[in-house]
């Protein structure tokens, strides 16, 4: 009974991993393709062709300015992937070294300082600070990346520190210490490689949060600015046209839902693979 249970669960988790990876790959693929090709220029206006429902020429229809919705979705994916990915990279490149540093023995003032700093950033209502940053430096994709990226720093710092603390008790770390390697060198040579899978899991989760955050920011007009298409702004613009062309609100929302779902499934699948339950 319990064996069958586990196998069943493992199979479904594996399925989740595969589905999640497939969805993620599809969206990232679309984003990459959009870099070089979209069916139409996503910014090209054609007032005569406005508000068409899905048809052979425009598979997802056109918006109120006659732009091709499919092309905008593709270009929006490019923008979303870019913002979310870069904000994760900011988090990794600053947060991981901080976490490693905090975990270095002997722990003391440095650890305390880094962790209190972490608490401070955590203490800020994230969306509010993102809005504040966008307001200070002006709205736009770059500032959205910074605003979202700042919140990834403490997350990665905390996860890295937690993982590193465990690894420091391992024999090979002790052996390296005995061999005379300094704590920084051990952190990078022995600890970091063992944290990669843990960071991959966290990275996937932060990526999916980044997708939602970017959409939220661009929905209130603080994300990517026109003519750069973004899913959040497409949703905002579609809201007034709800009765006229509901598909304009459904497509970007569904794309977002599907992408985040794929990322979550991928993250969860990766986590289970790393630490199989029982």
């Amino acid at each position: 009974m319990s064996v069958a249970d586990t196998r069943n669960g493992a199979a479904s988790r594996n399925a989740g991993l595969v589905i999640g990876a497939a969805i993620t790959a599809a969206f990232v693929g679309v984003a990459v393709i959009a870099q070089i090709w979209t069916p139409y220029d996503p910014a090209a206006l054609s007032i005569v062709h406005k508000l068409q429902s899905p048809n052979l020429h425009h598979w997802f229809g056109t918006d109120q300015l006659g732009r091709d919705v499919l092309s905008m979705l593709m270009a929006g994916a490019k923008n979303t992937v870019g913002v979310a990915l870069l904000s994760v990279i900011i988090g990794v490149f600053i947060g991981v070294p901080l976490g490693l540093l905090a975990a270095c023995p002997p722990r003391g003032a440095v650890d305390e300082l880094i962790m209190r700093g972490n608490d401070l950033v955590f203490g800020f209502p994230s969306l509010l600070l993102a809005i504040l940053i966008s307001a200070v430096f002006g709205p736009g994709a770059v500032n959205a990346i910074i605003a979202i990226g700042i919140f990834n720093i403490p997350v990665f710092a905390r996860v890295t520190r937690g993982g590193a603390l465990q690894l420091w008790t391992r024999d090979y770390c002790l052996a390296a210490q005995v061999a005379g390697k300094g704590p920084i060198r051990i952190s990078f040579e022995h600890i970091l490689p063992n944290l990669v899978s843990l960071l991959a899991v966290q990275g996937t989760i932060q990526f999916s949060l980044g997708v939602i955050a970017e959409a939220g920011l661009s929905y209130v007009g603080l994300g990517a600015q026109p003519p750069t298409p973004s899913w959040g702004r497409m949703l905002n613009e579609a809201q007034t046209l709800a009765a006229l062309a509901p598909s304009l609100a459904l497509f970007p929302g569904s794309a977002m839902l599907l992408f985040v779902l794929g990322l979550n499934l991928l993250g969860e699948g990766l986590r289970h693979r790393r630490e199989p339950p029982e």
Binding site: A242, A249, G253, L258, V260, L261
Partner: peptide, 28 residues
């Protein structure tokens, strides 16, 4: 598995889009 899938969906849905859908459905 059904409940876990439903919560997966809940995690993935942006709350403002859900708000828009609720307005379109129940209010408009």
């Amino acid at each position: 598995r059904v409940l876990t899938s439903v919560t997966q969906l809940g995690l993935a849905i942006p709350n403002f889009w859900l708000g828009m859908l609720l307005v379109m459905l129940f209010a408009v």
